[in-house]
């Protein structure tokens, strides 16, 4: 007959104590946390590559091979994690064979499939071009529309989880209207960060500058959105309780030190590459944001599920 954890609110009027109850363990764990990250860096990397194309910045191999490769690897690992997380993994095809059109799990699978196709096509073009099999001109003709297609595909790949989490009506923390946009910002952050790790492949000042600026800006935006999200008022008792756990309760340390402080450090470090002249610190920032996002997502995924619903 234990009493409840200390970071959960007690009814102030009755001071009621739950003495017997049963609750279910968190359904989603590290695989979902990780999948948020893998698809984010995959989608983000291609988003940055597309952006470069629109701005006319030539990222070289970073844009033609690394970004789509990150996209392919990210979405592939995402797929593996998703299927692995199923309690009936052998039935994963039911997603497409017995689909429910109202479910974002179904549409998510579609989005991931489309994104995977685009990323693969991009990668093939990049590799074939680099190998000299396809001419640069042909590649351009194909990559231009691909880049435009990447924008909605990558945005949805990163952001559809916002709609899915929105359907997870039991988790009020996930009901934020900002979530879709926040996930895209996070994608750019970890995508750009991931690209920077490969900066040695094309250390041109211009590309480093673009990627580092993307990283710095998205990271700052991420932090700003975090603060807005967690320091603002939460609409329901459930989301308040979850937010309280994040900022003051069992996850406070991971959140502030891992999620927020690390991200700020990364943003500053990334900013040193603004001009594309310094690479060391931006690369480091590229590593740090991955950790920062993983830390935050682990908190975000767990806290929402930790609030008792009964």
């Amino acid at each position: 007959m234990p009493t409840g954890p200390s970071d959960l609110p007690v009814d102030p009027v009755s001071r009621a104590r739950t003495t017997l109850n049963t609750a279910h363990p968190r359904p989603w764990g590290w695989r979902v946390t990780t999948y948020l990250w893998t698809k984010a860096f995959g989608a983000g990397a291609l988003l940055v590559a597309a952006l470069a194309r629109f701005l006319g910045v030539d990222l070289g191999l970073l844009g033609t091979v690394v970004a789509p490769a990150l996209g392919v690897v990210g979405v592939a690992v995402t797929g593996v994690l998703l299927v692995w997380d199923l309690k009936q993994p052998k039935r994963f095809l039911y997603l497409l064979l017995k689909p429910n059109p109202t479910s974002w799990l179904v549409w998510g699978a579609v989005v991931l499939g489309v994104f995977a196709a685009i990323a693969t096509a991009w990668l093939c073009m990049g590799v074939l071009t680099a190998a000299g099999v396809v001419s640069t001109q042909t590649a351009e003709v194909v990559l231009d529309p691909l880049a435009w297609a990447v924008v909605p595909a990558a945005a949805l790949t990163a952001g559809y989880t916002g709609f899915l989490f929105g359907q997870a009506e039991g988790r009020d923390l996930w009901q934020s209207p900002l979530l879709f946009w926040h996930l895209i910002v996070q994608a750019v952050m970890v995508g750009a960060g991931a690209l920077l790790l490969f900066a040695f492949l094309d250390p041109s000042g211009e590309s480093v500058a673009l990627v580092a600026r993307s990283l710095a800006i998205s990271t700052l935006l991420h932090v700003a959105m975090l603060l807005l999200e967690y320091l603002g008022r939460h609409p329901t008792r459930n989301s308040q309780a979850a937010a309280h756990m994040v900022t003051h309760g069992r996850y406070a340390r991971v959140f502030w030190a891992g999620g927020v402080a690390l991200a700020i450090v990364a943003a500053v470090a990334a900013a040193t590459g603004w001009q594309g002249t310094s690479v060391m610190l931006p690369v480091l920032a590229g590593v740090v944001v991955q950790a920062a996002l993983l830390a935050y997502e682990s908190v975000f995924v767990r806290a929402a599920q930790d609030v008792p619903l009964s």
């Binding site: 009936q88 993994p89 039935r91 997603l95 799990l105 899915l164 989490f165 997870a168 039991g170 619903l309």
Partner: peptide, 14 residues
């Protein structure tokens, strides 16, 4: 059922 646990997240009543 494929065991995705989405329903567990969707149900506000555990």
């Amino acid at each position: 059922c494929i065991g995705c646990k989405g329903c567990m997240q969707a149900c506000p009543y555990d």
